[in-house]
Simulated assay, not measured.
Amino acid sequence: MDIGALLIQAASLMLTGMIGVFVFLSILILAVTNLSKLAKPDTGAPTVPTTRRQPSGGVPNAHIAAISAAITQYRTKQ
Rank of each mutant, 00 (worst) to 15 (best):
L7P: 03
R52I: 09
S12M: 12
V21S: 04
A5T: 10
T51D: 12
I8E: 14
Q54M: 10
T76K: 14
N61Q: 13
P41C: 03
I67W: 06
L28S: 09
K37L: 14
G17H: 02
Q73A: 15
L28H: 09
P41D: 02
N34Y: 12
R53C: 06
L7R: 09
G58Y: 00
Q73G: 10
I27W: 08
L35G: 05
I19Y: 04
G58H: 01
L38D: 05
I27Y: 07
A66I: 00
I71Y: 01
R52Q: 14
Y74G: 09
F24M: 09
I3H: 07
N34L: 14
T47Y: 02
T47D: 04
L30W: 09
A11F: 04
A39L: 12
N34V: 13
R52Y: 11
D42A: 10
L13S: 15
L13Q: 13
G20S: 03
Q73S: 14
Q54A: 15
G57I: 05
R75T: 12
I27C: 08
I67H: 00
A70D: 03
L35K: 13
L13E: 14
L38K: 15
Q73T: 12
Q78R: 14
V59E: 00
L25R: 14
V59T: 01
L13D: 06
F22C: 00
L35S: 07
M14N: 11
Y74P: 00
V48A: 08
L30K: 11
P46N: 14
T16N: 07
A31E: 00
P49T: 05
T16Y: 13
H63I: 14
I67G: 00
A45L: 06
I19N: 02
T47H: 01
Y74H: 10
A66S: 02
A65W: 01
S12Q: 12
I27V: 09
I29Q: 12
M1N: 05
L25N: 12
A62D: 15
D2K: 04
S26Y: 12
P49R: 06
N61R: 15
M14T: 09
G44V: 03
Y74V: 06
I29T: 13
V32A: 05
R52V: 15
M1C: 06
Q9M: 11
Q54H: 11
F24S: 10
